[in-house]
Design a protein around this nucleic acid. Structure first.
Lengths: 119, 119
DNA sequence: CAGGATCCTTGCCGATACTG
DNA sequence: CAGTATCGGCAAGGATCCTG
């Protein structure tokens, strides 16, 4: 059963799905300060399995948000970097962070009040 | 296993989770144009089960994003509306939509190119 | 009308082992 | 080093039935 058509396949939803994905956001944030290798990403983003990291990187690459550069050397070396589109998306994430920092106290207060009222 | 501590419980992640939730966003968008009843939301947001709708509404209420007003009449009538905090969040969603509309063509083109390269 | 309770499926994701 | 392949657990979420 599909959700409302006015939101199922619209551009917004696709972006929302990406934004809502934990690993994707973390990768984008990490790459915001420059190129990184696979292992660097894996080490810094603690808790991510090879499977999920690869899957996330492939998805971001497919969407044109990051580039994947394979250096034909041994041992292998693969670099990941944001495209300009990816940097643009990072701008959005920064906007979200600003909003979050500005309003998290209100949200926390609301939660506390709500939970107290349920007791 | 927790993801990177610098992102697990930070304000950004909590907002990201909310933004990434399909039903929450749809509810916020629907309430952006005014107060609506439970059934109105259920009918308009096609495909949502009573369970998920209630769960979503409770979550939004707990976070102080919407208000829930029970009218003591028969048959029951419950109105939902955005708080000012919820309206502020809606502003964020609008920003995402603008970005999505502006860049979806690039993303689509990247996907097509990527898929073609795999064949 | 506005949900609460229950059951049950599915698909996401983590852990692990293996390879060019 | 940079992945791929496979298995299994677990929780989100859908369908359904029931009630104040």
């Amino acid at each position: 059963m599909l959700p409302d058509a006015y939101a199922a396949d619209c551009p917004s939803r696709q972006i929302l799905n990406r934004i809502g994905d934990t690993w994707s956001v973390l990768v984008v944030v990490m790459l915001a300060d420059g190129t990184h290798r696979y292992t660097e990403l894996a080490r810094r983003i603690q808790g991510v399995s090879p499977k999920m990291l690869t899957q996330t990187l492939r998805g971001l690459e497919r969407d044109g948000l990051i580039t994947r550069t394979v250096h034909p050397v041994v041992p292998p070396r693969v670099d990941y970097a944001l495209t300009s589109l990816g940097q643009s998306l990072y701008g959005l994430v920064e906007g979200l962070e600003k909003w979050a920092e500005a309003h998290i106290d209100d949200v926390q207060a609301a939660r506390t009040a709500y939970d107290a009222a349920q007791a």
